[in-house]
Structure formats: C-alpha cells, structure tokens
C-alpha cells in the first residue's frame, strides 16, 4: 500500500526527468519545397518542447522541388532520437540524417559583420580579418562589412575580436552541413 509521502508538494505527475546529458546534434532534413513545410517543422519543435539552436533552409533540387534543412538541435540522446522520428513522421519530409551520429561531416556558417572604426582600430580590424580569412564586402571611410565563413566556433571567435574594435551589427546564416566522403547522405 502507499506509504505517506514525506514531500509536501509532490506532483501527482511524478518528478520530471532530472538533469541528463545534453548533446548538440546536426540534422540534415530533405523536404518537399511546398508552402507550410517550414511551419510544420518549427511547429513540431515548439509543440513538443524541443530546443533548436539554428535552422537553415533553401531549395536544393529544383527539378524534384526539394529543399534541404540543416537543423542544429540540443537535447538528451533520447530527445534527439525522438526529434528524428517525429520529423520523419511529417508527410513532406523525405529523409532525416543525424550527421553527428553518422560520422564525419563538414559544417559551415556565414556571417556578415559590420564594424565602425577609424585610425588604428581600422588597421587592426583588417589585420584580424586577414588572419580569419574574412573578406571585405563593403567599405566606407568609417566602416567595413566583413564576410566570414567557417564553423560556428570560428565565427564566434572572429566576432569576439571585432567587438572592441567597434562592431555594431551581425547577420548570421546558421549552419549548413554535409557528410564527408563519397556516400550520399
């Protein structure tokens, strides 16, 4: 029989899941390029309480009318597994690959970084940009716009360097990813 609970505010739904390992996974999702498909994916994440770190989508096959989404999601291994299965349930979703799980892959994002500075700082900004292989895509007497591509870490490092030099705006794409080697995803 039930022993009287000592805990005062014990929920009848029991304890929630405790702290478990949180992982970051990159998912590559092949979808039909049709109205509402992005809303379906986003709605799935918000409706089921999954966390999304970044999402990138564009048409990749005009003939078949398909797009590829790259989703960086965080959660416990069980949640990541659920995310993959729930995405696969959506009718316009053709294929879901967990690139983090499936082995080597490359991941890139692009950022446009606007820096306003003059004098010494201007030279410093250009020097750093050179080290990071960022390109100048716009320049005025008192500003630069740099274009940088790379892993999220590299982009973050570059941004950290630019902040003290007078960085004002960033626009980032989020990750695009693809598996290494000859195998199709």
């Amino acid at each position: 029989m039930v022993v009287k609970s000592k805990k005062q505010n014990f929920s009848v739904y029991g304890d929630g899941p405790g702290n478990r390992t949180i992982e970051r996974h990159t998912l590559s999702v092949l979808v039909d390029n049709e109205p509402g498909v992005l809303a379906r994916v986003i709605g799935l994440f918000s409706g089921r309480g999954y966390n999304i770190e970044s999402l990138t989508v564009a048409e990749t096959n005009k003939e078949l009318n398909q797009s590829r989404m790259t989703i960086v999601a965080i959660g416990t291994p069980a949640v990541i597994d659920q995310i993959r299965h729930q995405l696969e349930r959506l009718v316009p979703v053709h294929k879901v690959n967990d690139l983090t799980e499936e082995g080597e892959h490359v991941e890139r994002e692009l950022a446009l970084v606007k820096v306003i500075c003059t004098g010494e700082k201007r030279i410093e900004a250009l020097r750093s940009a050179n080290i990071f292989r960022a390109r100048v895509v716009d320049s005025t007497q008192e500003s630069f716009v740099f274009e940088i591509t790379g892993s999220a870490d590299k982009v973050n490092a570059f941004i950290d360097l630019m902040i003290p030099l007078g960085m004002v705006n960033i626009s980032r794409t989020g990750s695009a990813a693809i598996s290494r080697g000859p195998n199709e995803m």
Partner: peptide, 19 residues
Amino acid sequence: PSGKAHNEMILAADADKFD
C-alpha cells in the same frame, strides 16, 4: 495515483489508505 507504480495501486476496500 499518478506518479505511483503498478504495484502501488489502491483498492476500494483500502480507500482510506489513500495518501
């Protein structure tokens, strides 16, 4: 009761033992 296990079920006869 929610949050309890299958072997912790309560019967009509023991309803007063309900926590």
